[in-house]
Amino acid sequence: MSSIVRIPTPLRKLTSGAREISVNSETVGACIAQLEARFPGLGERLCDERGELRRFINVYVNGEDVRFLAGLATPLCPGDEVYIVPAMAGG
């Protein structure tokens, strides 16, 4: 069983409209690399030249911000849900 990545609207042009992508990756970083390999251009939307998550990108694993976990090294288990959210205004 693989992990599910939920793709937000602004990125769906790159995934031919797909809302959810299944990946087999052990970490969030590997998951982004796998997405880039399948959908060229997606990786650079998410990460900067240094390979770090862009500051206005939020990535969640099962609802938790990866910046509270291990960042790109956050491990993924089968069945995990990865969600990508552009920054939002408040509140």
Binding site: R6, P8, T9, G63, D65, Y83, V85, M88, A89, G91
Partner: peptide, 30 residues
């Protein structure tokens, strides 16, 4: 907390055609 409510709202915004003032209308709202 708010950040979790906001993340949920952004998922909802993605699925439903609603005017989320702080999400899809954010540029105008601000």
């Amino acid at each position: 907390n708010y950040d979790q409510a906001n993340r949920l709202a952004s998922e909802v915004a993605d699925r439903y055609g609603w005017a989320f003032v702080n999400i899809n209308l954010r540029p105008y709202y601000a």
